[in-house]
Amino acid sequence: MSFDIDVEGRRGDFELVVAFQAGAGLTALFGPSGAGKTSVLDMIAGVLKPTRGRIAVDGHVLFDSTAGINLKPEQRRVGYIFQDARLFPHISVRDNLLYGYKRLPDAVRYAVPDHIIALLGIGALLERRPGSLSGGEQQRVAIGRAILVSPRLLLMDEPLASLDDSRKQEIMPYIERLRDDVKIPILYVTHARAEVERLAAVVIGIEKGRVSKAGDAA
């Protein structure tokens, strides 16, 4: 279980050249805002196309500019948790959670809804609409929705940044439990040192679109 990234890309004037590898467990992508962290996640998810490079997860090539491979987002099996939860407002929490799970072939399913719902403590919310949930609850549902597509890699883009301190403390244990429960690599973008220290085993530092350091979190 590992992933391997070596990409170049640009967004407007901003130029990004990033290469690193990471294994199972939680890897923090750490750096100031505007460093290009979210662009890296977007490239892995298939939302932003690199100008050159290669992205492979667990031996599966998602993007390879020399081989002409560029899988669509829906073909990548990469879970993406956004800073804002981005729950679908017109369907219930249950339907949000099962949106990706429903259409997944049995053969690739490893995440079990009942287990994930219990793990994230969202069993009481299932019939509600996303609009009636607190920010912390919404983010827990978003985490459940992404993990229920049984991804090979989980991307988390500052999932705590839009929450106040007490909410952060509320979500943190769930992310720890998830990290220890699922065997897939998690790439966690943040600019908060406290989150890195608490959650990450490995840190990749990013500054101005370049990898500034890579190593153990401690």
Partner: peptide, 27 residues
């Protein structure tokens, strides 16, 4: 309609048409 919701649907495995019929059209 927030296009980021459609992108979220795509990352959840929905193709363009499914994202259209389940997200864009109802919203």
């Amino acid at each position: 309609v927030d296009r980021r919701l459609e992108l979220a649907a795509r990352t959840l495995g929905a193709g363009w048409w499914r994202a259209f019929f389940t997200i864009t059209l109802p919203l």
